[in-house]
Simulated scan of single mutants.
Amino acid sequence: MPSLLLVMFALQLALHIINTVGATTINEVLWAIWTKLPTPSGKSTKRALELKLDIVSVKRDMAAVSAQDDFARWAKITRQHDKAMQEFQMLDARLKAHKATFTTTISTLRWLGTQGLRFLLQMYYAKTPMFWLPAGWVPYYVEWILSFPRAPVGSVSINVWGIACASMLVLASEAAAAGYVLVTQKPVPLGDGERKNGEPMAFTARGEKKEL
């Protein structure tokens, strides 16, 4: 069985990645992968793409044919266009419904596998010490804080360990971003999860912050 310390660290790492990249971006990537697989949604996506190309081709043919000079051919092309458009609209509506269901399912599974599992572990192991501090290493009030809420005094609780892991990951990612800027002299692209209050920030090549 993996160490509880490593399990909590892995959960915090997964949450940090999700918050940095953005849940919407992850959902879009997973949906793109899902539609590439031999699934009903994948087949529908492939067929919708074929219909879209056919519609573009038929529209070009319609533009090249005059309804007055060659009405029979123009009417035939129009029927082909209407038939392809009708099938495409039906497929598109079906795909949108499938995508909504897929997104809801993935979001639920992601929450259960990260936030839900973290809450469950914090409740179940609330009294379990992650590790013990050396006796007399820190004052009593610090020991009490580190053991919050129900771990034995003198130990580090699972809640405090989770907070420590999250803080360390944030500092490490910021250090990596700063190092990237210094080495490449390029701004660091920000994910959806890093946008706060609708005002995303990015580093400039000189290390100055710039509002987008």
Score class of each variant (00 low, 15 high):
Met1Cys: 09
Met1Trp: 02
Ser3Pro: 04
Val7Ser: 00
Met8Ile: 05
Met8Phe: 05
Phe9Ser: 07
Leu13Ala: 10
His16Glu: 12
Ile17Asn: 12
Ile17Trp: 15
Ile18Trp: 07
Asn19Arg: 08
Val21Phe: 04
Val21His: 14
Thr24Gly: 10
Thr25Ile: 00
Thr25Cys: 04
Thr25Lys: 00
Leu30Pro: 08
Ile33Leu: 04
Thr35Gly: 03
Thr35Asp: 07
Pro38Asp: 06
Pro38Tyr: 02
Pro38Gly: 00
Pro40Ser: 01
Ser41Ala: 14
Gly42Arg: 00
Lys43Glu: 11
Lys43Asp: 02
Lys43Cys: 08
Lys46Asn: 09
Arg47Pro: 01
Ala48Cys: 13
Leu49Ile: 11
Asp54Val: 12
Val56Leu: 11
Ser57Ile: 05
Lys59Phe: 10
Arg60Gly: 15
Arg60Gln: 09
Asp61Thr: 09
Asp61Ala: 10
Ala64Ile: 06
Val65Ser: 05
Ala67Pro: 14
Gln68Cys: 14
Gln68Thr: 04
Gln68Pro: 11
Asp70Pro: 11
Asp70Val: 02
Asp70Ala: 04
Ala72Arg: 03
Arg73Val: 01
Arg73Glu: 03
Arg73Lys: 08
Ala75Glu: 07
Ala75Thr: 06
Asp82Ala: 07
Ala84Lys: 00
Met85Glu: 04
Gln86Phe: 01
Glu87Asp: 02
Phe88Ile: 03
Gln89Leu: 08
Met90Leu: 11
Met90Gly: 03
Leu91Val: 01
Ala93Cys: 02
Ala93Gln: 07
Arg94Met: 02
Leu95Cys: 03
Lys96Thr: 13
Lys96Gly: 07
His98Tyr: 14
His98Cys: 01
Thr101Cys: 12
Phe102Leu: 03
Thr103His: 07
Thr105Gln: 07
Ile106Pro: 00
Ile106Lys: 04
Leu109Ala: 06
Arg110Asn: 01
Leu112Trp: 15
Gly113Met: 04
Gly113Pro: 08
Thr114Lys: 06
Thr114His: 03
Gly116Pro: 08
Arg118Asn: 09
Met123Asp: 11
Met123Ile: 13
Met123Leu: 15
Tyr124Lys: 12
Tyr125Ile: 01
Pro129Phe: 13
Met130Leu: 02
Trp132Met: 02
Trp132Gln: 12
Leu133Ala: 00
Pro134Ser: 06
Gly136Trp: 10
Val138Thr: 08
Val138Gly: 03
Pro139Ile: 04
Tyr141Glu: 10
Ile145Tyr: 13
Ser147Ile: 15
Phe148Pro: 04
Pro149Arg: 03
Pro149Trp: 14
Arg150Ile: 15
Arg150His: 11
Pro152Asp: 08
Pro152His: 10
Val153Pro: 01
Ser155Ile: 09
Ser157Leu: 00
Ser157Val: 09
Asn159Val: 08
Trp161Ala: 10
Ile163Cys: 13
Ile163Lys: 13
Cys165Tyr: 07
Met168Gln: 13
Val170Gln: 14
Ala172Met: 12
Ser173Phe: 12
Glu174Tyr: 11
Ala176Arg: 10
Ala176Asn: 11
Ala176Ser: 11
Ala177Phe: 05
Ala178Ile: 06
Gly179Gln: 03
Tyr180Ser: 00
Val181Ser: 12
Val183Ser: 05
Thr184Val: 06
Lys186Trp: 10
Pro187Lys: 09
Pro189Met: 00
Leu190Met: 09
Gly191Gln: 06
Lys196Ala: 07
Asn197Gln: 05
Asn197Thr: 04
Met201Val: 12
Met201Trp: 15
Ala202Arg: 10
Thr204Met: 10
Ala205Glu: 05
Lys209Cys: 08
Leu212Asn: 11
Leu212Ile: 15
Leu212Phe: 09
